[in-house]
Design a protein around this nucleic acid. Structure first.
Length: 281
DNA sequence: ATGGCAGAAGCATTCTGA
């Protein structure tokens, strides 16, 4: 089962490239970020023609997430819910459409577009950390339900210095600070693992290159797009790849897709709906 | 320290992103 994530930086501008990529790799699930379109205007037909079902949570101009899947998503939820914070605390995140989740093939799929934060001195940075803390609370609640989780998207955080082309230059800066890394680790805790690092221990692998200063041509990138899976799923993980070739297209997204291959043949797809049962892998 | 590029909104230029 191929599960992919891609920040397309506008689905309408990147529609042809997205459809071409789907035809090329045939993913079972594709999570998109920065769709930048209201739900009524999301181009669902090209995906449905290929046999996919589409779930969207977008807004005008900014943000926006979507789940494209061969198997229709169940129990689709838009925004945060069931966090231990009160409803009023969750409410401040409602106007930015950055998270959509659903159950597909026995896995809880959580698609996120984490705020960038601008700089450590910015109000947006406070928002970013609060948002990550809310995501951590959201996952705490999912964990109580013993769900198998696949959390993916644009995290706007490089988990370690191995994930930055010039870590000294950006030490302590946005996307590289200890504050952000700690907030991310508090989301992951001991329950979620970085799919990419199961297979690759070295630096030099990026998922995002700045549009400016010829960053892609100079290979000055960052690895900020991630697929985290429940550790119970790690034995099922066959591969994790970043398809950086798309960054060389004309009019590319500044992000590349990331994709895992999970062997789910022996997973009980009827798990959801049976509260008294949970997986034995 | 600044600006570099791209997209949306909307028609000149600003806001936002990372």
């Amino acid at each position: 089962m191929l599960i992919a994530t891609w920040n397309v930086n506008s689905i309408r501008t990147r529609l042809t490239q997205t459809i071409d990529w789907i035809n090329q790799v045939n993913p079972d699930i594709l999570c998109l970020q920065e769709t930048k379109v209201i739900d009524e205007c999301f181009p669902v037909e090209p995906f449905e023609k290929l046999g996919y079902s589409v779930e969207v949570y977008g807004q005008k101009s900014y943000n926006g997430v979507a789940i494209i899947s061969k198997i229709k998503a169940k129990n689709v939820k838009k925004g945060f819910y069931a966090c231990k914070e009160s409803d009023e605390d969750i409410e401040i995140f409602l106007d930015q459409k950055r998270v959509i989740s659903a159950e597909i093939n026995g896995i809880k799929i959580i698609n996120v577009y984490v705020p960038n934060g601008s700089s450590l001195e910015s109000d947006k940075f406070v928002y970013k950390i609060n948002w990550l803390n809310c995501l951590a609370s959201f996952l705490d609640e999912q964990e109580k339900k013993r769900e198998l989780i696949c959390l993916m998207g644009d995290f706007n955080v490089a988990p370690s210095n191995l994930d930055i082309h010039d870590p000294k230059k950006y030490e302590g800066e946005i996307m590289a600070s200890e504050i952000e890394r700690n907030a991310l680790n508090n989301v992951l805790k001991e329950r979620l693992i970085d799919s990419f690092r199961i297979f690759e221990k070295n630096t030099g692998h990026w998922s995002w290159w700045d549009y400016r200063n010829n960053a892609y041509e100079l290979n000055k990138g960052w690895r900020i797009d991630h697929i985290y899976i429940s550790k119970e799923l790690s034995s099922k993980l066959k591969s994790c790849v970043i398809d950086s070739s798309l960054r060389a297209n004309s009019r590319p997204s500044d992000h590349a897709p990331v994709m895992i291959d999970l062997n789910l043949n022996d997973i009980n797809v009827d798990f959801f709906g049976d509260e008294d049962n949970f997986f034995e892998i």
